[in-house]
Design a protein around this nucleic acid. Structure first.
Length: 141
DNA sequence: GCCAACGTTGGC
DNA sequence: GCCAACGTTGGC
């Protein structure tokens, strides 16, 4: 299984809104970036991801699961863009902030620490475990 | 609200 | 195919 990170401005689409969708989930639409699209195409059902709040909060706040593989983005009439469907799995008991990620030498290679603009990012197994631990998730979600 | 960084677009 | 201009993102 692979791990990812999904970034959203909480005023546009927050983790609370994602949770409100329950197990039905929600498509992760609106992504208009080729790199991000390619990552979504590489995802398989059951992959896990962090939910990151940008701008306001600037922290990893929850865990989501991929429940549908990449399909055409319903908000894109041209058919160029794709998205996966996600459902909320768990809150991080303690949000892990961008500052904490940047301050940790072992997380220096996280895409989040370097290329802050990419809205869908890959996360390594080790990064996943570390951020879960920092966030107070004893049982890796 | 500002500005730097990045990705995309379009002219050549 | 290159590169300058532009728009957008996101941290501060």
């Amino acid at each position: 299984m692979a791990y990812w990170l999904f970034k959203s401005e909480p005023f546009k689409w927050s983790f609370a809104m994602q949770k409100a969708k329950g197990d039905a989930g929600q498509e992760w639409d609106g992504v208009r970036n080729y790199q991000a699209r390619n990552f979504m195409r590489a995802m398989t059902v059951g992959d896990r991801g962090f939910f990151y709040h940008s701008n306001e909060g600037k922290a990893v706040v929850g865990v989501v699961e991929v429940i549908a593989e990449a399909h055409p983005d319903s908000t894109d009439p041209t058919g160029t863009w794709a998205c996966v469907d996600l459902k909320a799995v768990a809150d991080l008991p303690r949000p892990v902030t961008l500052d904490e990620v940047k301050a940790d030498p072992r997380l220096q290679n996280m895409v989040l620490a370097g290329n802050s603009r990419l809205s869908v990012q890959p996360v390594t197994d080790e990064e996943w475990r570390m951020v879960c631990e920092m966030g107070g998730l004893t049982v890796p979600a």
